[in-house]
Design a protein around this nucleic acid. Structure first.
Lengths: 278, 278
DNA sequence: TTGACAAATGACCGACTAGTCATCTAGTAT
DNA sequence: ATACTAGATGACTAGTCGGTCATTTGTCAA
């Protein structure tokens, strides 16, 4: 669907300037050079466009960071994480702007749920990095670190996306690594405990259930042309229903699909599903 | 004007939930139990209400933090600053929510200017604290520190205002003081230089000019009943036009007016005007 | 050339918005 | 009792919004 992508692209430009609410469907269709009716042939509603847009970019960003982090040595992990995150945000800067602006501003409950889902994935990634890099040493202060890392990324966001400050991403990442290490090594007064995090009024995030996963896979099997991807998906679906294959084979099958844009989200979900399982 | 205050209070509740745009004048008047017409007797427009609201609370918060900071020893300055800031935000939590949510979201240029004006006052306060506490030692990294302190406050904001996490403000402030000291003492890789800050695309903030100051003072002289305040204002106005009095007398006159709610903003502006001058 | 079908259009709908203004009301002074 | 006035009202205007749908257009095969 090339039309869908056109609408997402043009709408994103407008959203970045004006926000969701202030941007009308009319403005979007004018920028696309299509009629208002044509918009509703691609999306059921304005909300569905926003939802699709968030999925599109967050899948892109999440899978990329995840892949890089999973294939990096512990000693440069923190640096790589910062660097790749900044890279991702820079690449999709319009989207990043919108996402940050709207996260506190949206009223729509389903959208909020979606946003907090991706946020929790991001937090999970940071926590696993903290555990890999610092381990037991930061047992008391790992949530402190989590929030500090998040707010360091926030500094980058503010400077780069909202004030257009030219920044060297490498020295930026280095600087944040230094700060993170300092805080990890010397912090004695914990700020946020595990209980504090528990007590937070998080919106209930639906676990990615196996049924949902199967549904996505089936849909993709139908749409995919490539035979290797198709067969891999069929086998992986079989594995979800009836575990039989060895970890190496599973890993291989996931690797078969992870470079296909239509499959990378499935690859991400399956990877996390099986690592948790095994 | 008790009606004006009623509208500000009720509107703030709605803004905190829904934001400026999503809240209609109708909703506000319904919540106040007044007619739509009555709203426009108190405010020229919806925008003027928002503007007045921001002034009302930011003057409150700014003057309070400024006063506390100016009357605190260097050795507990950082702690006191964090603590008082959190206190202020907690006290005006609805406003804080709105202010944070809307700062990236507003399109209205005049409003943006107002918001960045108060932001720059806040940044100025933090910078002067950094200089007092750490002095020359953080020459290279003082802007790093500025942004870290700002983002620490952002952590508090996120936890307390948006996730309603119960927090002990004292240990929170202690924890942030420790983190700030760590970063100040050991950071070797600067992130943000003075040039970086210069290059930021700040909206042009109008200096508070002497004419504007005189205007506000004259207006307040007319409105004020208290004879001491009135006379102090008259003398201070004279001093602005023709410097004659000694610093001690000026300080005394400012002290005369700074506890009066209608005058505290003038007190703040004059204090900064004269310390810069002398 | 015709018929069939999908793609695209934009006039239209009901619901909402900020802001206005002729009208009304309650309190005071004479 | 009368006249005046400041405050309050809500129907109203002019406009925007998201979304719909009867109609038109373009593209095929027969």
């Amino acid at each position: 669907m090339v039309k869908k992508q056109l609408i997402i692209d043009k709408a994103l430009e407008l959203f970045a300037e004006q926000g969701f609410e202030a941007t009308s469907v009319q403005q979007i269709t004018e920028k696309c050079g299509i009629s208002k009716g044509a918009f509703y042939l691609s999306f059921k509603s304005k909300g569905e466009l926003i939802s699709a847009m968030i999925d599109h970019f967050m899948i892109e960003i999440t899978t990329r960071i995840d892949h890089v982090v999973n294939n990096t040595d512990d000693n440069v992990l923190l640096y790589t994480f910062y660097y790749e995150t900044f890279q991702s945000f820079q690449k999709h800067s319009d989207f990043a702007k919108v996402f940050i602006k709207e996260q506190t501003h949206t009223i729509d409950k389903e959208l909020l749920l979606k946003i907090s889902y991706y946020h929790s994935l991001f937090e999970g990634a940071i926590l696993s990095i903290i555990e890999r890099v610092f381990g037991e040493k930061v047992k008391q202060t790992k949530y402190d670190l989590l929030y500090c890392i998040k707010s360091f990324i926030g500094i980058y966001t503010e400077l780069n996306l909202f004030y257009n400050v030219p920044l060297d991403l490498q020295s930026l990442a280095e600087s944040f690594v230094e700060k993170t290490n300092l805080l990890a090594k010397h912090t004695t007064i914990p700020l946020i405990s595990a209980e504090t995090v528990q007590s937070m009024e998080h919106p209930l995030i639906e676990e990615v259930k196996i049924e949902k996963l199967l549904e996505i896979i089936e849909q993709t099997i139908i749409e995919t042309k490539e035979p290797i991807e198709k067969e891999s998906l069929v086998l992986l679906k079989q594995e979800l229903l009836e575990p039989a294959l060895s970890p190496a084979i599973i890993k291989g099958l996931i690797n078969n699909i992870r470079n296909n844009p239509d499959c990378k989200w499935i690859a991400y979900l399956l990877l996390h599903y099986f690592t948790f399982k095994i």
